[in-house]
């Protein structure tokens, strides 16, 4: 078996004695998508932030391509350069135009020549239907367009894995589709992804594996369709029943 791109081993994290991760184990193989579902506060977002070293973990290990990256001796910038993250609230830079938004990291953090970065940025914008928006500022775009720009910004650095933190939760319902479409396309292109989401239909369709998190633990895991349509654990069943009551799957 090949080495997973991401491996989480017994990771724990507490904020002020309040445990948020209580021993998470998880693997993301290359070209696969692992989707985490679970109620708000179940630890999905915290785990993603720990993987990107934006938050220090308490115990356990996180491995990227077999290397333990959670040791204090590891340069976090080097790790973050091989990962990319998209946030619930986009976090685009409001003072930066769309094209520069996408080329900033390739040029400054990866040392790619400007011409090359611009050319590649334009190609990505064209591929995702935003070619006519390269001179716009974020506040001139719709929420869906902003999140698509954030996705392009994330993949412009050619990351080993993409971390998606509830990227449709802040969007109006009619804008969710266009964003998820981009993620589906990235999946087809072979992008390795770890995704936290509340979109169950999307989880079922795109995931190679779905993990249900509850109180900082993976309570159940399985193939997308089986997990969403036929969960075994009572907590999973309760959660999915609540989700089904408010949303169409």
């Amino acid at each position: 078996m090949t080495m997973p791109v991401l491996e989480i081993r017994g990771v724990t994290k507490a904020f002020d004695d309040k445990p948020v991760l209580q021993g998470i184990d998880l693997k993301v193989e290359e070209h696969t998508a692992v989707v985490m579902i679970g109620a708000s506060g179940s630890g999905k977002s915290s785990l993603l932030r720990c993987i990107n070293l934006l938050v220090d973990i308490d115990d356990g290990d996180i491995l990227l391509d077999g290397e333990v990256v959670t040791d204090p001796t590891v340069d976090p910038q080097r790790v973050r350069r091989s990962l990319a993250m998209v946030f619930q609230h986009f976090n685009l830079f409001p003072h930066v135009r769309v094209l520069d938004q996408i080329t900033l990291a390739p040029i400054k953090a990866h040392g790619i020549p400007k011409d090359e970065a611009v050319e590649e940025g334009r190609a990505l914008l064209a591929r995702f239907g935003l070619a006519d928006r390269e001179r716009d500022y974020p506040d001139q775009l719709s929420g869906g367009q902003q999140q698509r720009v954030a996705l392009i910004r994330a993949i412009a650095t050619r990351p080993r894995a993409l971390l998606l933190d509830e990227i449709t939760s802040a969007l109006d319902p009619e804008l969710v589709g266009e964003v998820l479409e981009v993620v589906r396309e990235l999946k087809e292109g072979g992008m390795t992804m770890l995704i936290a989401t509340h979109e169950m239909a999307f989880a079922r369709d795109v995931a190679d594996e779905v993990c249900f998190l509850h109180q900082g633990r993976v309570v159940e895991r399985g193939l997308g369709r089986q997990m969403i349509e036929d969960p075994q654990e009572p907590e999973t069943q309760k959660f999915l029943a609540r989700m089904l009551a408010t949303r169409a799957v």
Binding site: R49, N52, L54, P76, Q77, R80, R81, L83, A84, M85, F87, H89, N91, L92, F93, L104, A105, K108, A109, H110, R153, A154, T157
Partner: peptide, 14 residues
């Protein structure tokens, strides 16, 4: 907003 710093670090900036 602290999310701006997070996003900047996440794309690989120092």
């Amino acid at each position: 907003h602290p999310g701006q710093r997070g996003a900047a670090l996440a794309v690989g900036l120092s």
